[in-house]
């Protein structure tokens, strides 16, 4: 079958939607990677720039939502076209939220910059960030290439993030128990780790949306989970 619509302006709209979504994906990835880098480098100037850039993601998400609504109202998309538009709207919202979490990480990193490094628990946020970054990059490739298998692989990788978060949670709590000076910084770090874990969850949402877009049915199998932090302290 020819892949073009008889009405070429319909293709123009869908292509624009796709182009804007990939642009938002690129911006969200850059923001997330920068937020993890800034945690290591503690460069206040870069952190402030990142926080200001978040508005670009908000604006682009709003533009995508508007275009998606217009396509539904004016073009009445069917079958894969409909799934593509609905998926774009959902993924756009998720990418905008990843931007928000990157900003949250940066706000807390900025707070940590004010504290003495002696009072900050030494934990491996960078590694957790790197695994999440790879998931995010892979899920965007899966979207671009309509790769169902890669989408499933990304979704199943989230369990690694959950395990890292649980381990980090235990380490930070132990550190705070040992040294009360670590409580303020430790709390910030717990929230940073939780933000990364939430980004991982959002990436799995995109992976599941990809699967639905490609196959026309939800990825219904139970997703593996290993975030045990909410059960901490319960025997």
């Amino acid at each position: 079958m020819g892949n073009e619509h008889i009405l070429s302006s319909f293709d123009d709209d869908l292509n624009k939607l796709n182009k804007d979504l990939l642009k938002l994906a690129k911006l969200a990835t850059e923001q997330f990677v920068s937020s993890i880098d800034n945690f290591s480098t503690q460069n206040i100037e870069e952190i402030d720039k990142l926080i200001l850039r978040d508005k670009n993601l908000d604006d682009l998400d709003e533009k995508i939502q508007q275009l998606g609504f217009e396509i539904i109202a004016l073009r009445s998309p069917q079958a894969e076209d409909l799934r593509r538009v609905i998926s774009a709207l959902k993924i756009s919202t998720v990418l905008e939220r990843i931007g928000d979490y990157s900003r949250n990480i940066s706000n807390r990193t900025k707070a940590l910059c004010e504290l003495s490094s002696d009072d900050i628990p030494g934990v491996n946020i960078g590694k957790m960030g790197l695994v999440t970054q790879e998931m995010l990059e892979d899920v965007i490739i899966a979207y671009k290439d309509k790769d169902s298998d890669l989408s499933i692989k990304v979704r199943d990788t989230d369990v690694v993030i959950d395990k890292m978060n649980t381990k980090l949670y235990q380490e930070v709590l132990a550190s705070m128990s040992r040294n009360k000076k670590n409580i303020v910084s430790g709390t910030h770090i717990l929230f940073i780790a939780k933000s990364i874990e939430r980004v991982g969850d959002y990436v799995t949402d995109i992976a599941e949306q990809n699967y639905f877009l490609i196959n026309g049915k939800p990825l219904s199998e139970e997703r593996p989970k290993a975030d045990k932090t909410s059960l901490y302290g319960i025997d």
Binding site: M1, H5, F10, Q78, A79, E80
Partner: peptide, 13 residues
């Protein structure tokens, strides 16, 4: 069917 999809989504079949 691909032909059905092409028709209902306004593509050249």
């Amino acid at each position: 069917d691909k032909q059905t999809e092409a028709y209902i989504s306004g593509r050249i079949g």
